[in-house]
Structures are given as structure tokens and as C-alpha cells.
């Protein structure tokens, strides 16, 4: 069964105009696991993450070469529908970025976007809002504030809302770009708990600067340096018995 292959990349290269950000990336991310992307600033981990939903293409001057398959489908094929790709591959950003709409409209935004034909009934919407907010553990706190502007919530609630708004679309992959870097330690802990809870149902790829976090939440870890994948193994192996000297040096804090 190919279901174990979540994301595969082969010979993936990416340039920002002239600067080469990714060099011959080959990897296979297993479906249903949490995979951490670690490495020093500028190593290309965020760029790599942003290849998986093709959001990189918003930036002028980006050129991508090579192949990325998500659940067996080549996402850079000309026939790919970006809207459908982004339904299946959700993204959580470094800075919580709820839309300047109500909490309710934030959760329903994507659902409405993907249903341009038929409209969403009130009860259907209510169900989706409750289910999604329960899933991320903010339903009790926000049930009476669904009409409040989402940008007025605490950062922790905003980030959880940003995860919740992806769920009604039943994505297969969740991409998280340093999802806790704007949060305090206790909020970070609760978001990590949430990530562990979502594990298994979604393939989660999480970029992090925080090695302790990578160790706490991920099943596998990918260490990157200067646009290349250096090592990709089970998290405890990467941390306890790194095979590459550069990985060892980074993990022990000799650079980065």
C-alpha cells in the first residue's frame, strides 16, 4: 500500500531569482507521522515546507525544479488544481494569522471557499464550527464569542483557531511553520499537546528552531543545512546517535 508515503520529493531544487535555496532535496515523509524539520536559520526548511502546498509561488522570482508527490500525486504537474491541493494540504504559519473576521467566519472561510456552488446552511456551519473548535480545545472558551473578531483573541487561541479552520476541509497533510514561536512556554506546551492529539490522523510536518520541541513532538526528524537534507531518521536516532558529523555538531549546539 502506498498510504505510508505521505510526501515524497525527488531532485527538488528551488531558486529565489538567483539564490539557490534548495539543492537536490530527496526525501520521503511517512503518512500519519509527525515529522520535524530542523536546521539553522536560512537552511531552507521553511522554503521546503512551502513547496508542499506551492505557496512559494506567491513570491515573484521563485523557480522550482524537480518533483513533489503528495499521497502519490505529482503536485507540480500542469493539471494540478491549486485550490484542491490547498484543501488537502493545510498550513499553519509562524505568526498566528486569523483573518480579520469573526471567529465563526474564520472557521467557515475555507469551507465556503471550496463550496462556490452550493451555499452552506446555518446548521451545517454551526456543526462544523463546534466540531473544529472542540478538536483544538477552544470550544468551551470561545462558544460565547463566536461573533468576536478573531484578531482580538489571545495569541494561543488565535493559533489554535488557525489550526481549527483547516479541519472542516478534512485535509490529509498539515504543514506547520514554527507554530509556537510567537507563544509563551505554557501556550507552547498546550499547542504541542494538540499536535500530538492530531498525530495519526494527519501527516504533520513541523518546522522548528527549537530542538527540544522537535524532540518532544516529532516521530521523525529531518536535519537540513544550506538547502540540503543531511539526515532523516527516527527522532530519537537523530538526537541520540546522529550519523552525520554536521548533525551531531548542530544538535550539540556547536553552531546554529
Amino acid at each position: 500500500m502506498t498510504a505510508t508515503k505521505g510526501i515524497t520529493a525527488s531532485r527538488l531544487n528551488l531558486w529565489y531569482t538567483k539564490f539557490r535555496a534548495l539543492t537536490g532535496v530527496d526525501l520521503e515523509i511517512r503518512h500519519g507521522l509527525v515529522t520535524g524539520l530542523i536546521g539553522p536559520s536560512g537552511c531552507g526548511k521553511t522554503t521546503l515546507l512551502r513547496c508542499f502546498n506551492r505557496i512559494n509561488e506567491r513570491i515573484a522570482g521563485v523557480r522550482t525544479e524537480g518533483k513533489v508527490e503528495i499521497l502519490g500525486e505529482d503536485i507540480y504537474a500542469p493539471s494540478v488544481d491549486l485550490v484542491e491541493l490547498r484543501r488537502r494540504v493545510g498550513m499553519v504559519f509562524q505568526r498566528p494569522n486569523p483573518l480579520p473576521l469573526s471567529v465563526r467566519d474564520n472557521v467557515l472561510f475555507a469551507l465556503r471557499t471550496h463550496r462556490s456552488g452550493g451555499s452552506l446552511s446555518r446548521s451545517e456551519g454551526d456543526l462544523a464550527v463546534e466540531a473544529s473548535l472542540r478538536e483544538v480545545g477552544v470550544w468551551e472558551a470561545l462558544r460565547d464569542r463566536l461573533d468576536r473578531r478573531a484578531t482580538e483573541l489571545s495569541l494561543e487561541q488565535q493559533q489554535k483557531l488557525c489550526i481549527a479552520r483547516l479541519l472542516p476541509l478534512q485535509p490529509e497533510i498539515l504543514l506547520m511553520d514554527e507554530p509556537c514561536s510567537a507563544l509563551d512556554p505554557s501556550a507552547t506546551q498546550r499547542v504541542e499537546e494538540l499536535i500530538r492529539k492530531l498525530r495519526g490522523r494527519y501527516t504533520i510536518v513541523i518546522v522548528t528552531h527549537n530542538m527540544a520541541q522537535a524532540r518532544r513532538v516529532s516521530d521523525e526528524c529531518i536535519f537540513m543545512l544550506l538547502g540540503e537534507v543531511i539526515e532523516h531518521r527516527r527522532t530519537e536516532d537523530v538526537f541520540l546517535a546522529p550519523q552525520d558529523e554536521r548533525t551531531a555538531n548542530y544538535i550539540e549546539g556547536r553552531f546554529g
Binding site: 502546498n53 505557496i55 506567491r58 491549486l82 485550490v83 484542491e84 491541493l85 490547498r86 484543501r87 493545510g90 498550513m91 504559519f93 505568526r95 494569522n97 486569523p98 483573518l99 480579520p100 473576521l101 472561510f109 475555507a110 465556503r112 471557499t113 471550496h114 488557525c162 479552520r165 483547516l166 476541509l169
Partner: peptide
């Protein structure tokens, strides 16, 4: 720009982003 990026990452087209996010904002 984070609003545009967020909406586009959820699969919204440019016009949907404009109509449903930018104009209200």
C-alpha cells in the same frame, strides 16, 4: 500580506481573497 497568504493557503482564489478578506479589511 499575511491575510492574503492565509487565505490563499486555504485555497482561496485571488478574487475570493479580494472580495471576502481585503474589501472588508
Amino acid at each position: 500580506d499575511t491575510y492574503r497568504e492565509a487565505a490563499e493557503a486555504m485555497g482561496a482564489t485571488k478574487w475570493q481573497v479580494t472580495w471576502r478578506v481585503l474589501l472588508p479589511a
